[in-house]
Design a binder for these strands. Structure first.
Length: 530
RNA sequence: GGGCCUGUAGCUCAGUCAGGUAGAGCGUCGGGCUUUUAACCCGAUGGUCGCGGGUUCGAACCCCGUCGGGCCCGCCA
């Protein structure tokens, strides 16, 4: 059974109605790691609906969280906002300085980072109900839970200290009020008189905070179960950081009982890292944003990456050859006929499960409605995108007639972007040598050498267009009673330094005839001298 | 210190929760397609399932131990 169906089954055992929740703090640039959180939730919601359950999928934007520190992409002037809630501070400009103009127009720090992520979500067909955590506090959604928490401060302290094993400070209180400057750091709670918290801030100011009006927030370990309670969350996937023993899920599980609710069904997922570069981290700049990823890859492929990998498996996102292999695997999967495969006699249980999982992973990956398009592998499209500068030529080569499906146009456009990017693997890059490649010269065999001189002659004599070039190559080989294969190998080695390559005549027509002949002659000479 | 994940073919992984003769894709090699779309088709190659014990008629799978890799437990998914 596919992992999403396993979770759906667990939900079905609990009841017919569910709210699957995900959430992210918009403290910086979103990256594809965050996509795993939301895609995991989205897929579970879909699986649960398939199982006949009534499911809502929500995405909580943790905009009430404070700015923790001045991240590397921020200007030092952000130091004044440390401890301030992300919804209450200005967005950064390109250079990292606060953009007061946009802030005046109502765009907050949180909005700034959330907006592109929302666009990415639309592209990958994830449509949750968004819940803004800051607004939720302000509109009193946390009133009940906050009051209960404050009235049970000792109780909660005991839970956190016992379960997490860490010691809370003397002045700890389950509510972080906002001080005179708007910060929730360095503030001390001095009294609690339901629903008012009294406090003293670092500068010695005194004040009060009404917990039912969102004049502050609950600390994370309480904030989370409080959200479960007021929203009615019954399922939530979360990163392994929260899943560790004694982590926030463990304490939340007990705290939520105080709110007279049960903890949601959990699913801990592993992180996504960039191949060879470790975990993704907004602060180190070691990231690939969802939009950047989507500029290279069709959304189906990103969905497929998550759908076909079990949540507890770490994913290494590889923007090079790994991506090509992933995309080609997806392409092959779309071509499979699962109903025929499953009817096959004598399938072992394992084989059946493998077929079912592949089928489900594919279903979860497709963006609905799925356009029927001709199948083209990534490799092939990569080649066409490099050798044909006009889109029309690509369609002709693929035997596609107008009107071309929009999804195909998108794919080609993405491929062109990818080819131009630093991520495109050298292995697939078509390069034309300027001078003989010594390594390739070594690989030229006797047959190749026999063919080269007459090849050069006929290439010199022929019209420089595809049909003649093609005829020249194969006729030369046949004239010597050899397979054209040898002629092509010789040309690939001389011109591109590889033993094989994409259809040569079309590439040659885009190059200077004289340059090519010069290169070929140089190769023959180099070989003879060696 | 506590905990989680992970180790299976050259590579990426499935199979471990219901023990029953080692799987897939890619790669590599060979052949085909009488023009080579890095395509496509056919075939072959390839693994002491990290290591050591135990349970069992039977273990990649269950139990114990051990070694290696990654990671979490200060609000980074």
């Amino acid at each position: 059974m596919h992992w999403s169906d396993v979770v759906a089954q667990r939900l079905a055992e609990r009841g017919p109605t569910h709210i699957v929740s995900t959430g992210i703090t918009p403290s910086g640039e979103f990256h594809i790691g965050h996509l795993r959180e939301i895609l995991t939730g989205d897929m579970i919601a879909k699986a649960a609906r398939k199982a006949g359950l009534d499911v809502e999928f929500v995405f909580i934007v943790d905009s009430a969280d404070p700015l923790r520190k001045v991240y590397s992409f921020l200007d030092d002037s952000y130091a004044q906002y440390i401890g301030h809630q992300l919804k209450q501070i200005p967005p950064p400009n390109q250079d990292g300085t606060p953009d007061m103009d946009r802030f005046a127009e109502g765009v907050s720090y949180a909005d700034h980072f959330l907006e592109p992520f929302k666009q990415a979500l639309e592209q990958i067909d994830v449509r949750p109900r968004f819940i803004d955590n800051y607004d939720s506090y302000a509109s009193g959604k946390f009133s009940e839970t906050a009051r209960i928490a404050c009235n049970n401060a000792a109780n909660i302290r005991e839970i956190i200290e016992r379960v997490s094993g860490r010691e809370l400070s003397e002045g700890w209180f389950p509510w972080n009020p906002i001080d005179a400057n708007g910060s929730i750091d360095g503030i001390h709670v001095t009294g609690w008189n339901d629903p008012i918290v009294s406090w003293t801030d670092s500068e010695g100011n005194h004040g009060t905070s009404d917990v039912t009006k969102g004049e502050g927030k609950l600390p994370w370990r309480i904030d989370w179960p409080a959200k479960w309670a007021w929203i009615g969350v019954t399922m939530e996937p979360f990163g392994k950081d929260h899943g560790a023993a004694g982590g926030s899920y463990d304490t939340g599980k007990e705290i939520v009982q105080l709110f007279s609710k049960d903890a949601p069904v959990d699913l801990t997922y592993e992180w996504i890292s960039l191949r060879g570069q470790g975990a993704m981290s907004s602060s180190s700049g070691n990231t690939i944003g969802p939009l950047e990823a989507l500029s290279l890859v069709p959304p189906e492929i990103l969905r497929y990456l998550v759908a076909s990998t079990k949540p507890n498996k770490a994913i290494e996102f590889d923007t090079g050859m790994g991506l090509v292999n992933l995309a080609d695997e997806f392409e092959r999967t779309t071509l499979r006929d699962f109903s025929i495969e499953m009817q096959k006699e004598g399938l072992s249980r394992r084989q059946l499960v493998a077929i079912e999982d592949a089928k489900t992973a594919l279903e979860l990956s497709l963006i609905s409605p799925h356009e029927e398009t001709a199948s083209v592998t990534f490799r092939h499209l990569a080649m066409l995108a490099q050798t044909k500068s006009r889109d029309d030529d690509v369609w002709r080569s693929l035997n596609m007639n107008e009107p071309i499906a929009q999804s195909m146009k998108d794919r080609l456009h993405r491929m062109r972007t990818w080819v131009q990017s630093q991520h495109f693997p050298e292995e697939l890059r078509i390069t034309i040598l300027q001078q003989p490649n010594p390594h390739a010269i070594d690989l030229l065999d006797e047959d190749n050498m026999t063919l080269l001189p007459p090849l050069i002659q006929s290439l010199q004599a022929c019209d420089w267009e595809t049909a003649s070039i093609q005829a020249a190559i194969s006729n030369t080989a046949k004239g010597l009673e050899m397979s054209p294969r040898h002629a092509y190998r010789a040309l690939y080695l001389c011109i591109m330094g590889t033993e094989r390559g994409p259809r040569l005549p079309t590439i040659l027509t885009e190059l200077e005839q004289g340059e090519i002949l010069k290169l070929l002659n140089a190769c023959v000479q180099a070989k003879q001298e060696s």
